[in-house]
Amino acid sequence: MLTLEEVLVRQGAFEIAADFSVKSGARVALIGPSGAGKSTVLSVIAGFIAPVRGRLTMSGADVTGAAPGARPLSILFQDSNLFPHLTVFQNVALGIRPNLKLSAEEQARTMAALENVGLAGFEDRKPAALSGGQQSRAALARVLLRDTPLLLLDEPFSALGPALKVEMLDLVQSIAAENGTTLLMVTHDPEDALRICESAILVADGRAHAPVPTAGLLDNPPDSLRDYLGK
């Protein structure tokens, strides 16, 4: 579904190489020491950073030079996933209509997505009037509505408490399973990876390695990961 062919990224003196593919419908974690470039890899896939070399394909189409909005994916950032000046409804509806000119059918679909994540009745509120968990749900409602084949998560739940984070991960898992979405998720917590990702990509030593089964990687980590995990 997603392939990075001999991709090389350069950010000043920092370089990272990636050459791997992810199968359709797979749920993959990106694990590695902090500063290794996990978020950078995600930014390249999302189109915010152009690689200096290599090719990127999604569902067979070359997207190497495509604008972020033209790629068949949704992304949730660490923060600022909602516009504070727009209502929850507008924030979610932006996922299908960037100009917010919605048909009656699109309005109904937006409401349905809100209902699906348990935010029915919150559509007219501004994000500031929501709890942290509700804000995450609103962002996930937009992911649900967009229904893109690929979902990228750049630790969007790291500010939530442990129980709430697990709740959100489970919601992500059920959304991904329902729509057959391919999931790529940056995490610094091995527990998160084990919980919903059957495979994991190790990002370390200037390289994003090919995905391997999560449990195997964590049970028998290479040196670069062992120091980080503290095992």
Partner: peptide, 22 residues
Amino acid sequence: YGRLASSLRMSGWARLRWLVLP
């Protein structure tokens, strides 16, 4: 918010109207 807007394909008038002006 630039990255969020770009990922949602907000450009031109939509970006001005719903992101920049407010």
